[in-house]
Write a protein that binds this DNA or RNA. Structure first.
Lengths: 341, 341
DNA sequence: TTGTATGCGTTATCAC
DNA sequence: GTGATAACGCATACAA
């Protein structure tokens, strides 16, 4: 049996509009009729059909997510999938679903924006994306509220880890261990946060009285383990003095770096200490367990959700600018006090 | 400017139904008018509003996904997230979206089935779930086409790795290394595939003339690394003879097992070889790199998608029964030939 | 080959 | 307080 406001109205001997209003908690009705309707509604587990409601109200109670882009970063990504999970939990609390924004509906190829309009999406989360992607630019410049946990663009609120704090913590941790020769292996600079972390490294090194040298920095070619191995070897060749600590742009790359160093005959952490960034779950399982900057992926996702929901409620695109989420340094076995043999 | 079949029809001087039919590639029209409509459609990037279409056609072009259940397994899970990614890619090719099935819409708490009806979902994928969950049982027994990559239930098509093949490969690999004393550390038996793999182990051991002994088997308490450490120590206490190989129910648990063995003074792979199951990406990064059974998560997701799409097309629930996807053994450093010192 | 009328289920508006 | 009605945008049966 399919229930609609009509069938319910007929069953109870009232008007369809009465049912609708009571379901939506609007209008003024006698307690008697309100109770009667609510009781029956509950009994039959009625919920207004989403499509009809969306058609009428021009609102889908759905938030679109851009995730798997050209970047080849899939749902499997340990950090971003966790951000998405937190986001999802948060919006579901207040009755929103999430759906993945794609570039086609049925036969039709379409832009992100068209998809969003077509689905009457209430807002969009850009988990990963490129600031040069025309589809994303179009979406961000539309009237649809957007938020990002990765892409840096004007007029696009961004929720990210406090990279300044993270890099500063790393450098100071190294100094506290008596290690002043600090190199950096970043990820590809096409990803903005790697570039940003590099700049912070430059700045903080200067601030600590440790002049920055280009020969102490390598940008890995990719996001993965193999890129880390390669980058470590490249750094060892390029560097004027063997570093005492290497700060790495991500845990995944750091694993490669450590193996690259070991393959080149260096011991981690004694010869060279290594500090990662992310604290993915494998960081504590890897040998040596990885000292790293813990990103609060949960907080990032949930703050992004709350911020976007606020924008949707207020029907504004100007919810916020960049929100920085604190990080913390997790000390493990890939860093150790410098022994002045 | 918002476009509908009406505005388009008016603009072109034709009837709305003409536009609709041409968009949907039905009806018979002169090439001239068809071209004219299609050209304009393309120009303005028009796509029929999803909600109106769904309301009318009783079809949402959306597939619901049950993923994050009580199980505490989130989007972060390396294996299942990969399955989901493959599934998503496959259904998107033919114009379906995916949305996560949740238990509420707006204020209303509701069952999985109600949510699906409410959203006019075309089919459902149960990535992870429990066969005892009333919500899942209700959904599976409804008229909505369902498929699973985990849950074992009657009338529920299932796409899984060929566990028989996987365990057989593991045992035979061990025998080929001269290691006949083979123990098993499974995951919690509440997860059906762990139980199933255990039974296969029992059977194949017998088949190879190696009598099964209860003292060679431990079921880990959880799904993670720590459970593996614990299980390894438990096994060492329980076992009558130190095993030459331990087959483990999952890679994640295997990492723990290896560290547990090392903490107890055994060398992997020489004293005890370890074989995992899954081949998650860290298996090759872990030290020693893990010999394991590679599950073809991509194939599982994509076959599940194709099968479900077929069921949806044919409007039937009886698409298939269990489909087994072949696995392969990946030999790495956690197994080695037995040295008869 | 093309156009018209109707209903999908809901909700906002207005009338009673 | 309660009910009738129109409109959201589309697709389809039917008419022309």
């Amino acid at each position: 049996m399919k229930h609609t406001v009509h069938t319910i109205a007929k069953h109870l001997g009232v008007a369809p509009s009465t049912v609708s209003k009571i379901v939506n908690n609007t209008g003024n009705f006698s307690d008697e009729i309100r109770e009667r309707v609510l009781k029956y509604i509950r009994e039959i587990d009625y919920v207004p059909a989403a499509s009809a409601r969306t058609l009428k109200a021009n609102k889908s109670w759905t938030i679109g997510v851009i995730y798997t882009e050209e970047s080849n970063v899939g749902l499997e990504h340990p950090f971003f999938s966790s951000v998405l999970q937190a986001f999802k939990d948060e919006v579901e609390k207040v009755g929103y679903d999430i759906a993945f924004i794609v570039k086609r509906v049925g036969q039709h190829e379409m832009s992100y924006l068209s998809w969003c309009r077509n689905k009457k999406i209430d807002g969009a989360l850009i988990v990963i994306g490129s600031h040069t992607n025309p589809g994303i630019i179009e979406l961000v410049n539309s009237d649809i509220p957007c938020i990002s946990t990765d892409v840096v663009m004007d007029h696009l609120p961004l929720v990210v880890s406090d990279n300044d704090q993270g890099i500063t913590l790393s450098i100071d941790h190294s100094l506290a261990l008596g290690r002043k020769k600090i190199a950096l292996i970043a990820g590809p600079f096409t990803a903005r946060h790697f570039l940003y972390r590099f700049r912070v490294y430059q700045r903080v090194m200067e601030e600590r009285g440790l002049p920055y040298s280009e020969s102490n920095v390598v940008s890995a070619r990719g996001f993965g383990y193999s890129s880390g191995i390669e980058a470590a070897k490249k750094l060892l060749k390029k560097v004027k003095e063997i570093p005492e600590t290497i700060i790495v742009g991500s845990d995944l790359i750091a694993f490669g770096v450590i193996h690259g160093l070991e393959q080149s005959g260096y011991h981690v952490p004694n010869d060279i200490s290594v500090i990662g960034f992310d604290d993915i779950s494998f960081a504590r399982i890897f040998a040596p367990s990885l000292t790293t900057i813990r990103q609060n992926s949960w907080e990032i996702g949930s703050v992004a959700a709350k911020t976007l929901l606020k924008m949707i409620d207020r029907k504004t695109k100007n919810g916020a600018n960049t929100i920085r989420i604190p990080v913390e340094l997790v000390e493990r076995d890939s860093t150790a006090k410098l022994k002045s043999d």
